[in-house]
Design a protein around this nucleic acid. Structure first.
Lengths: 127, 127
DNA sequence: TATGCATTTTACGTAAACGTCAATTAAATT
DNA sequence: AATTTAATTGACGTTTACGTAAAATGCATA
């Protein structure tokens, strides 16, 4: 017996903690492309992978439009030199953005640590 | 001559690439508290620092409500044991969130690197 | 067969985060 | 004094990302 081929809409909502509305919305936005069995949606492993990419992008603060661009990079067609070079440019931009976010995170974590220390000290003083 | 004490609204919009509307909106939301000289806003270094925190939070995908909570952690009043412990709990939550974002970023950077490599290889093959 | 349950489609609603006027007002320059 | 320039205060508009309610459909079970 081979791997499951399809996921139902409720399986995905349960696995990722999202609503059916969200899944249908992403489909309207052409981010997902579930097949149909009569009227029911059947999500493929590819849909599930894309969904993970979408949710990860959202966690990082990307809009759906940005998520779409990033996913399109993954799916890029072979293309000619000019296209490929443009693609590299866009990749570099996203990488720079992500590196900025890394810095932002490190700063924030550091500050939260400092707050935590001062709170801890206050707690120690309280007996 | 000591350090500048105030920033005008246009100085801040220029420095951070935002609009006056945004600054007034943050003020309505009680995130900033500029003084007034007649009707004109005079932003203090403290306002500027908070603005930086706001913009950094936004880059990380936090909503203004979340940014507000984070800033309030920085500004927390001394408080009693129960309060302090709750604060530590909230700090831990935010830290976990940020660590998840770090993982998400590393994964995304790795994937973008892979795409970049395959694009580069294609370019090399094109002569 | 009737009934319940999940799913679908349609469509209006909503919260967040500003954008974009329009109508003052004040300060600075001619 | 007249005029340009910068800032302010409403207030309605817009986009994004779904929420939510209603009505129809289809499968499963009592």
């Amino acid at each position: 017996m081979t791997k499951r081929r399809y996921y139902t809409i409720t399986e995905l909502t349960a696995e990722f903690g999202i609503t059916t509305r969200t899944l249908r919305f992403y489909e309207d936005e052409k981010l997902l492309n579930p097949e149909r069995q009569a009227r029911k949606r059947l999500y493929t492993p590819r849909d599930r992978t894309r969904l993970k990419l979408i949710l990860r992008g959202k966690r990082l603060g990307f809009s759906l439009a940005e998520v779409r661009e990033i996913i399109e990079m993954y799916d890029h067609a072979p293309g000619e030199r000019g296209q490929l070079e443009k693609l590299q440019g866009r990749i570099a931009e996203r990488q720079a953005e992500l590196e900025q976010k890394q810095k932002d995170i490190l700063e924030t974590l550091e500050e939260l640590n400092q707050v935590n220390s001062s709170v801890q000290q206050r707690l120690n003083e309280l007996k």
